[in-house]
Design a protein around this nucleic acid. Sequence first.
DNA 1: GCGTGATTGTGGTTTACATCA
DNA 2: AATGATGTAAACCACAATCAC
Length: 296
Amino acid sequence: MAEKDDVGLSLSLSLGVNQHSFKVNNMHHPQQQQQLQHQPQPVPINHNKTLFADLFQLPDRSSDVIRVIDVKSTVECEEDNGISSPNSAVSSVSGSKRSERDDDNAALVASGERTSCSRGSDDDDGGGGDCEGGRKKLRLTKEQSMVLEETFKEHNTLNPKRKQALAEELNLKPRQVEVWFQNRRARTKLKQTEVDCEYLKRCCENLTEDNRRLQKEVQELRALKSSPQMYMHMNPPTTLTMCPSCERGHSSSTSSPAAAVHPAVVPPTPRKLFGANIRRPVAVNTWPFDGSIPRP
DNA sequence: GCGTGATTGTGGTTTACATCA
DNA sequence: AATGATGTAAACCACAATCAC
C-alpha cells in the first residue's frame, strides 16, 4: 500500500476516464441486454489524451500512455469500519434502472412526499424509517472498497450484469454500485485534470523558453545573413529538430542556416517539444489497455 | 476541511412506434 | 397494400454539479 501512494497518485497504464463517445449499452429489451452482456465492453476513449497528442503531437502515441490517477489511492479506508456494515446500506434509491428511480422520484414529488431524503422504494423492505433527518450515508467496508476498486481497475464502467453481480457479492444495492462507479470516475477525472493542468503549465513554460531561444537564433541568423563572409565559414549544425507543425528542419542548438536546408540530419527529438526536463505524466490506470482502441 | 456516498439535472444514444410520401 | 424515410417519445446511461455525512 505504501509504495504506490506516496504522493497520493499512482501511475499506471490506461486510458483516462472520459468516455463520452462510447455509450453503447442502452438497450431496454432484455434480449438485447443479454446479448450485450456477452459483447466486449466498449472501450472508452480518453479525450484528454487525444487533446495532448493532437495539440502537442506527442511522439508517443503508439504506447498511448496516459496518466490516470488513482484517486482512491488510499484504498485503505479509515479504520472506522464499525460504522459501516453492508446492511447499513440505508442510502440510495432504487435499483439500477433509471426508470425505476425516476418513477420513484416522480411519485414522491407528485405525492409531495419528497424530502431531503430522496431515497426510493428500495427501502421498502424496512428501510423507510432510516430517512428521518436527511440522507444517511453508508460507509463501505474495507473489503467492499477493495472489491470495487479491483473491479474498477479492470474496467471503469459497468454493464448490468456486472453491476448485479457486484451488488450481490458485496451485499449492496445495484444502485449503490452504480453510484460508486460514477463517483470514482468523476474523481479520477478530476485528479487527472489537475495533473494535466500542471503538466500543461510546465509545457507552456518550456515552450516559452524554447520560443525565446529560437527568436534569439533567428536574430543571429539574420545578422549572419547580412554578412555573407561569415555565413560561408559557419560550422554545420550539431543538432537539428523537425518542426512538427511545418515539418521543416530547425537548428536547435547551433545557429546555422544549413540546418534548414538539411532538416533530416538529425531525427526529430520529441523531447524538444516539451523541453528536456519535462516528462509527460503517465496515464493512471483503470483498466487494461491493449492499444487497439478505435479513434474517432 | 476533506473524503466520499448519494441526489439531481442534463445531454447523448438507441429503440419502438407512428406518420407520410 | 407494402415500403422506406422521417419525426417523436421513452428508456437508458454517463456525467457534472452539488449536497450531506
